[in-house]
C-alpha cells in the first residue's frame, strides 16, 4: 500500500511532461478540426449567396430535408435543393452498397484461401502484394485510368476490344449512361479496396485457434460447415469493423465519382454526398449554408457510426490495455 503511494507520488511529479507531450496534438486538433466544425455548425444556420453571414435559423435544414421554402429561400429553390440532396443520398448509398457487397464476397473468399493451412495457396505472398497495389494508387489517377479505358468511343480500350470481338454493334456508353457508369464506379471502388479488405479479414482469421478446426474435422464437420459455424461467428467483430469503416469511407466517396466523366463537371447520376457538399461551396458557388447543413448532417451520421467502432476498439482492447499500463 505504502509502496504504491510512493510510486504514484513519483509519477505525479512528472505529470506536466504528459501534458507537454500531448499538447501539440490537441492544439492542432482544435485549430484544424474542432474550430472548423464549430464554424461549419454556425454556417449551417446562416444564409446562402449574398446572405452568407446572416442568421437564418433552420432554413437550410428545412430546405434540404423537407424542401420547405422560407423567408430566405424561395419555395422553388428549396424544392430543387431538396431533390438534389436526397438523390445524392440515394446515389451515395447505391454506389457504396454495390461495391461493398462485391468487395466483401471476394475478400472473404480470398482471406479464407490465404489463411487455409490445409490447402496451401502457392504464391500467396505475391498475390497479397498485387491485390493491395490498387489501393495505394492516387484515386484521381485511378479515375483517369478508367475514363480512358472505359471511354464511350471506339477509341477507348474496352469498347475497341468489345467491337473487335463482335460482342457489341455500337460502343457502350460506359461514362454517359447513368446505370452503366454507376456499375463501372462500383467496379472501380471494389478494384481499389478488395485487397485492403482481404488483409483486414485475414488478420481476423489468423486469430482463430487452429485446434478448433481440428476438433471440428475429427467430429466430421465439412469445410463449408466449418466456415459457417466457426469462421463466420469468430469473424463477427472484424466484419462489423470492416462494414462500418467501409460505410464511413463510402459516405465520403468523392474522387472517383467526381472525376468519372468526359466533360470536366460531375455527372448528375454520380453526384454523391461529398460531391454535393463540394459543389455548393467550391469556386464561385457561395451556397455555404446548404454545404454546411449537409456537412453537419453527414457529421452526425459519421459520428454515430464512429461510436460503434469506438466500442469495438475499446471493448476488445480494454482488458489488454489495463494490463499493459500497470
Amino acid at each position: 500500500m505504502s509502496e504504491t503511494r510512493a510510486k504514484s507520488r513519483k509519477i505525479v511529479s512528472y505529470a506536466k511532461y504528459g501534458y507537454i507531450f500531448i499538447a501539440p496534438f490537441f492544439i492542432v486538433y482544435c485549430f484544424f478540426m474542432v474550430y472548423p466544425l464549430i464554424n461549419t455548425f454556425i454556417l449551417s444556420f446562416q444564409g446562402n449567396d449574398n446572405l452568407v453571414g446572416v442568421g437564418v435559423g433552420f432554413d437550410n435544414y428545412k430546405a434540404l430535408l423537407f424542401g420547405m421554402g422560407s423567408d430566405t429561400i424561395p419555395a422553388d429553390n428549396a424544392m430543387a435543393a431538396s431533390k438534389d440532396y436526397w438523390s445524392s443520398w440515394g446515389i451515395t448509398l447505391i454506389l457504396w452498397a454495390g461495391n461493398f457487397v462485391v468487395q466483401l464476397a471476394l475478400s472473404l473468399l480470398l482471406a479464407v484461401w490465404f489463411s487455409d493451412t490445409r490447402i496451401k495457396l502457392k504464391g500467396a505472398g505475391f498475390f497479397k502484394v498485387v491485390f493491395y497495389l490498387p489501393n495505394i494508387i492516387t484515386a484521381v489517377s485511378v479515375a483517369g485510368m478508367f475514363i480512358m479505358l472505359f471511354g464511350d468511343t471506339k477509341y477507348n480500350v474496352v469498347n475497341s476490344v468489345l467491337l473487335k470481338m463482335g460482342l457489341v454493334g455500337d460502343p457502350i456508353k460506359f461514362v454517359t449512361n447513368d446505370w452503366i457508369a454507376r456499375v463501372v464506379v462500383m467496379f472501380i471502388q471494389s478494384w481499389m479496396w478488395f485487397g485492403n479488405t482481404t488483409l483486414l479479414l485475414m488478420s481476423g482469421i489468423f486469430g482463430i485457434d487452429p485446434s478448433i478446426y481440428e476438433a471440428a474435422s475429427i467430429d466430421g464437420s465439412s469445410g463449408m460447415h466449418q466456415f459457417i459455424n466457426i469462421t463466420m461467428p469468430i469473424l463477427k467483430p472484424i466484419f462489423l469493423y470492416v462494414f462500418i469503416t467501409s460505410m464511413i469511407g463510402g459516405l465520403q466517396m468523392f474522387d472517383i465519382p467526381y472525376m468519372y466523366n468526359n466533360t470536366g463537371t460531375t455527372s448528375p447520376f454520380l453526384r454523391t454526398q461529398a460531391v454535393y457538399i463540394y459543389n455548393h461551396f467550391y469556386k464561385g458557388a457561395n451556397n455555404y449554408g446548404y454545404s454546411a447543413a449537409a456537412s453537419i448532417i453527414l457529421f452526425i451520421i459519421t459520428a454515430a457510426l464512429g461510436l460503434v467502432i469506438y466500442n469495438i476498439n475499446t471493448g476488445d482492447g480494454s482488458g489488454k490495455k489495463r494490463k499493459g499500463s500497470k
Partner: peptide
C-alpha cells in the same frame, strides 16, 4: 477523445475550414 474522434474525417468540416 482520441479514440472517439478517430473515425471522423476532415471532409465533414471542410466548409468551416475553408471559411476559417
Amino acid at each position: 477523445i482520441i479514440l472517439a474522434v478517430m473515425m471522423i474525417p476532415t471532409q465533414v468540416v471542410s466548409v468551416g475550414l475553408l471559411r476559417f
